[in-house]
Design a protein around this nucleic acid. Sequence first.
RNA 1: GCCCUCGUAGUUGAAUGGAUACAAUAUCUCCCUCCGAAGGAGGUGGUACAGGUUCGAUUCCUGUCGAGGGCACCA
Length: 552
Amino acid sequence: MEERIKKAVGEALMKMGAGEVAFVVERPADMRHGDYTTNAAMAAAKKLGKNSRELADELARVLIDELDKDTASYVAVAGPGFVNITLAPEAIALAVAEADAKKEEWGMGSVNSEQRVLIEYTDPNPFKEMHIGHLMSNVIGESLARLIENENATVIRANYQGDVGPHVAKALWGLQRAGTSEPVTAKEIGTAYAAGSLAYEDSPEAKAEVDALNQEIYAGKNHELMELWRKGRDVSLEAFEQLYKILGTHFDYYFYESETADPGLRIVHDGIKQGVFEESEGAIIYRGEKKGLHTLVFITSKGTPTYEAKDIGLAFLKEERVQSDRSIIVTASEQIGHFKVFLAALNEIAHLIAKKTVHVPHGFLRLTTGKMSSREGNVITAESLIKDIIKKASEKNADPLIAEQVALGAIKYMILRQAPGSDIIFDPEKSLSLEGDSGPYLQYALVRARSVLEKARSTKHEARNEKPEMPYRLERLVVHFPEVTARAASELAPNLLVNYLTELAGEWNSFYAQEKIIGGENEAHKLMIARAFINTMTRGLALLGIPTPERM
RNA sequence: GCCCUCGUAGUUGAAUGGAUACAAUAUCUCCCUCCGAAGGAGGUGGUACAGGUUCGAUUCCUGUCGAGGGCACCA
């Protein structure tokens, strides 16, 4: 629909001799202004040096001829020169019928038509418990994956896990110190990591031991150590799989730092000859200053690869295993600087890979009660957060499955409701609200709508399909769903869909409160609206990865 | 010290340079004899500060203040 209007506005501008002007067609903030609005007249006025109101009047006249009677009922000029388009009731009825009839295909688009998109997200570290940052990465990444898929692309989900590096050495040091040769729980390993991490900071001897362990792990020659490493890794990875299951996410490819280290080292060493990297104080570095960035170490003076070198190795490994047109990496925003340098270096080695790669940063989850640190003992793990919210949701839901669905809805909503890059301020005292703007609000609206349909099945109703002259606001909102999903996908911003669905749920709740559906006037028409709402909400929540409970 | 984000009702968030800055929450009123009150209807309340560009600035530019993150051997 938006496309159709955009095209008509473009043609109208052409006829007015302003074909070059860039303009937008969008949903006005206030529905009373119409179903679509365009700033085309104001944009053209600037370019042509004419009065915007006069130009808007002219555009409105031309536009009403461009759009056929069944599409727009009228076009009006308002404010400084907005041209507002109000859809014809027939066009709205048609779209609502489509929202019902198309089922799973409702809202599917072609923004990423035929593309193969590789998306890396979650990236937890074995030997550490999964914390909230990884949860955020997972929830955002999974939703992006689904939004991109919905635009007719093939999405390949990848997870990159840090199974080597200093944090692993710290955990193994802790396990050795505790005399554990057979770790069985992730918690056990997490505790060992915390112990190793503390000792590393407090004791120079421990630091030296951990550093030595780190190199031994890279070397892989110490059988006893590697056996402990393998066992600990398996336990951690298995714990992650349990969480992925609960979160409703899955991966097509797993990459591990233990396998990116070698290619990373090799490629960086090759890069020295090409003048991309250089040696400095025994380390191999990339001088970011040549690109207005800062210098980063890629290989340490001890010969171990850093995160940056491993990322170079990873980029090539991905290329080897997965054919892709685009590559998206979702990580915390603290890595923005590192990714800039990494991509600059990669661009010198492999221009085509760098060009198709984009880093999508997500914010932190910050506590109102102060910084999270393992030292303070107030680190919130993904598991503990989920458990807490499930407990809260259980107060109203005896069924544990539903309590879990509601809790996940609440958590995912909190993460997805705002622009991906910004931090989330979380008050652990107040916990998560299950009312108002929230996941459960959307779920509840859906459950109630389904319940109406359920009831309607057992009652007799008229076959006549009459409808009021003016479409309901709810219907007018449903029309916009495909545009919203397309925009959320192209801007990599699930929050746009969250905001839309929240508005949609509110509109349904008002409709539900004001209108008697079963046994009311125009029953068949209202039931159709209910079905259109249900399908739109169901599809929308699916794209966010928010579960839809049967009842609440 | 340098670089990057960001400052919007008491609080948490919206608003591709556009219309009377939009919600939720908290608070104050109402509404279950009627399809499910995790709901609906209404009230109170806001763009950090100072300049600039523009017909028009929460948005762009400059400065001040404040917060977060990054800046050679961590990830």
